[in-house]
Simulated assay, not measured.
Amino acid sequence: MTHDPHGWTALVLAGQRPGVDPVAAHFGLEAKALMPVAGELMLGRVLMALADTPQVARIIVLAQNTLKLKAHPDLAWAVEEPRITFQVSGPTISGSVLAAVNDPAIGLPVLVTTADNVMLTPATLAEFIAGAGSSDVSVAMVERARLEAAVGPNRRTWLTFKGGAYTGANLFALTAPAARNALTFWERVEQDRKSVLRLASHFGPVLMAKLLLRRMTVHEALAAAGTKLGASAAPVLLSDGRMGVDVDKVEDHALAERLLTARN
């Protein structure tokens, strides 16, 4: 497989948020990224999907403890792979991504994903990259009906707009310098990410009212949010409903195992 040498840089967020991660703790592990799912490390699955995607020129794993990740025998292949490097991340996710984007050796365009995005495949990455062309920031999302058709009813953080409910797919594209404005904003609001109300409050009362009353489609809402951020923003709606599943809870791990076993 030939890779585009001028292609995308993928940043894989493989660090730990402050405090104990409930999923890692359940399995007696310190690092969530090193948790196996259906016989493969979560981080290994994500790195393999990226390494098998021709549009991805290089992959940077960001984590607080890169030595622990690199020492794992199941990641020996990744340590040997010339396109994959491991970098120590900063204290916040957005700050770490911003530092990478501002590094002249990295620059743009950049894909951002997470070590627990275990349903990721080269086909989904190609679909997302194809859809991420026209805006500064692209956000991968999965429609609720599509996810439930693929995996059954599911507890997720659902964002409800005019025309449907959506969940994020832990996949972002930053393609233009204005994307830095979005990262700077995200650094300010990151702690509110799980509360739709608190997150919406950062965008001002008019946009918040329209969101609460479901007056906007997902495309209109992201476009309006982007205007506030000083960057154009658009969703890329993924066709694989399983992409709405990441491993945030113990029951997510069981679901991911079931889906991956079925796929294999």
Rank of each mutant, 00 (worst) to 15 (best):
A31G: 06
T53I: 10
V245I: 15
G15P: 09
L111M: 02
A224M: 12
P235I: 08
R180H: 02
D240A: 11
T124M: 12
M119V: 12
E81A: 05
R180Q: 15
T2M: 09
A140M: 07
L34M: 09
P73C: 04
L111I: 11
T9M: 07
A179L: 08
A209L: 15
G168K: 09
V112Q: 02
V245F: 03
A25K: 00
K162R: 14
L174E: 02
E251Q: 14
P153L: 07
V189H: 08
K228Y: 08
N102W: 04
A24M: 07
L259K: 07
P73D: 12
S94W: 13
N117D: 02
A100M: 15
L260I: 07
E127S: 11
G241T: 12
L29S: 12
A221I: 04
M141G: 05
A256D: 02
M35Q: 12
T160N: 09
A99W: 01
L50G: 11
D103I: 04
M243W: 01
S135H: 15
V46Y: 00
G164H: 11
V20S: 11
L67I: 06
A169G: 01
H219G: 07
A225D: 00
L13Q: 12
R45I: 08
H6D: 15
V23S: 03
L222G: 03
L197P: 10
T157F: 07
V137H: 05
D248C: 02
D246M: 11
R144F: 05
V236M: 04
L11A: 05
L174S: 03
K70N: 06
E251W: 12
F86E: 08
S232L: 07
I84G: 03
V139Q: 13
V23H: 04
R198I: 01
E30C: 00
R215P: 00
K68Q: 09
L62W: 04
R17E: 13
H26I: 02
L213K: 11
N264A: 14
G168E: 04
V56L: 05
A31E: 15
A132F: 08
P91H: 10
D116E: 07
T124K: 00
G19F: 15
L159C: 02
P153E: 07
P91F: 06
V110T: 05
I60K: 00
N170D: 13
H202K: 12
E190I: 13
N117M: 04
A99R: 09
